[in-house]
Computed example of a mutant assay.
Amino acid sequence: MKNNKRNFSNKYSDVRNSILKYSRDSVFTLAMNYLAMENSSGGKSFMIQDAQWLIFMMIKISSSSTGVLKMNDTDFVRLCNKLFRLQDYLIDADPANLLLRFRPLIYQQSLLRKDVPECMRSLARQCKILGGNEFYEKTFHEITGVGVASYFTIWLNILVQATGKKGSGSFELNIIDLLYRVQKVVPLYQVVNFFVFFGVRYSDLPTFFARFSGSAGTVDDYYYDTPLKKKPFLVSGKKIYLFSEKLLLSCFPLLLIQTIKDARVEDAKAQLGLDVEAYIGGLLKKTALKVFDEKALKTIYRENNIPSLGS
């Protein structure tokens, strides 16, 4: 496997250097064009649309480009295919562990296949657990400039817009419609702060991606989540674009909690754990199942001489 990783590193450098020969503007324009295309088995973008994570990797690599060549469609598809084939150097052909070898790649791609109803259910659950809680309201506002209630309201309206769109690629968010719908319950400054915090300007992409340069060219860099899951909105002048509906739906369920965790707020992780446990416990008590709480489980462990953490 070490040789595979070494080969991967060399091959990755070759592909990266090829991408960096092209201007950042031309690569980004093609990337957004491909994300915006409808899925069609007869279209040349078909094989790329089913692997959007390759497009996000292309955007990330090209963000540091100082190249002058203008990339065309053929170049774009060719280099995307080269990125895709890099996985050949990361799979150790061990039949006994084949699924384990594929798991990181499958996990990454499956995250881009969530749907709107699933996200609506996630929104409802998070509202139930976090909504109306002063601790989260204050903590999240200090981090982002947006209250938890405002955050959920804005997201609800974004998801509603996503349901009315055909395809799963990028599209322009209707800000006028969003402001009209949330104006009575969300202060304007919080709407602005939402897109400032969770959006990124094209000119800031190099700086943004530089924060994740430590893993560049590694297995983690290739297999795991794109940094754009932290900032799924592209801010361009007075317009807001979604990089991809698939990206939007995959990042939403954990974005609020991940934002709090990334800020390393004292006691936040412990508080989240307790509140989630309480929520799940409340649901289990409504079932016909016999449910034991943590205290009861510790008693059972002690009575049966079973060692447990924290006992």
Rank of each mutant, 00 (worst) to 15 (best):
Pro206Ile: 03
Leu35Asn: 14
Ile240Cys: 09
His141Gln: 10
Phe233Trp: 03
Asn81Tyr: 07
Ser203Trp: 04
Thr153Trp: 00
Ala51Thr: 08
Tyr180Thr: 11
Arg85His: 12
Gln183Ala: 14
Gly131Thr: 01
Cys251Leu: 04
Met57Trp: 05
Lys231Asp: 01
Ile19His: 08
Leu69Ser: 14
Ala270Pro: 00
Val146Ser: 12
Arg211Gln: 15
Ser45Cys: 02
Ser168His: 11
Ala268Ile: 03
Gly281Ala: 06
Gly131Lys: 02
Val27Pro: 07
Glu277Trp: 02
Glu118Ile: 09
Lys295Pro: 02
Glu137His: 02
Lys261Cys: 10
Phe209Lys: 03
Ala36Ile: 05
Tyr34Glu: 13
Asp75Leu: 03
Thr299Phe: 03
Leu173Glu: 03
Val291Arg: 05
Gln87Asn: 12
Tyr241Ala: 06
Tyr180Glu: 10
Asn305Asp: 11
Ser203Ile: 14
Asn157Ile: 07
Ile61Asp: 10
Asp25Lys: 15
Ala36Pro: 07
Gly145Cys: 12
Gly282Gln: 09
Asn81His: 05
Phe46Val: 05
Val192Trp: 00
Leu228Arg: 11
Leu274Ala: 14
Ile306Cys: 02
Tyr151Asn: 12
Ser150Ile: 04
Asn33Glu: 11
Leu159Val: 06
Ile240Asn: 08
Met32Ala: 00
Ser23Tyr: 13
Asp92Lys: 04
Val182Lys: 06
Val219Met: 11
Ile59Ser: 06
Glu142Arg: 08
Phe194Thr: 01
Lys238Ile: 12
Leu274Tyr: 10
Leu274His: 09
Gln271Ser: 09
Leu248Trp: 03
Ile91Asn: 13
Leu274Glu: 15
Lys128Met: 03
Ser150Val: 03
Arg264Ala: 14
Leu309Gln: 11
Asp92Leu: 05
Val276Glu: 12
Ala210Gly: 01
Ile61Met: 13
Ile260Lys: 05
Glu38His: 14
Glu266Ile: 13
Tyr22Lys: 14
Ile61Lys: 09
Ser63Met: 07
Arg201Phe: 13
Cys119Pro: 02
Ser250Asp: 12
Asp94Tyr: 00
Ser250Asn: 13
Glu142Ser: 13
Phe208Glu: 01
Arg103Val: 00
Ala263His: 09
Asp275Thr: 04
Ile176Asp: 15
Ser64Thr: 13
Pro232Phe: 06
Tyr89Thr: 13
Gly43Ala: 14
Ala51Arg: 14
Asp204Val: 06
Tyr279Met: 12
Val196Gly: 00
Ile154Glu: 07
Asn3His: 07
Leu100Met: 08
Lys21Arg: 14
Gln258Phe: 05
Met58Val: 04
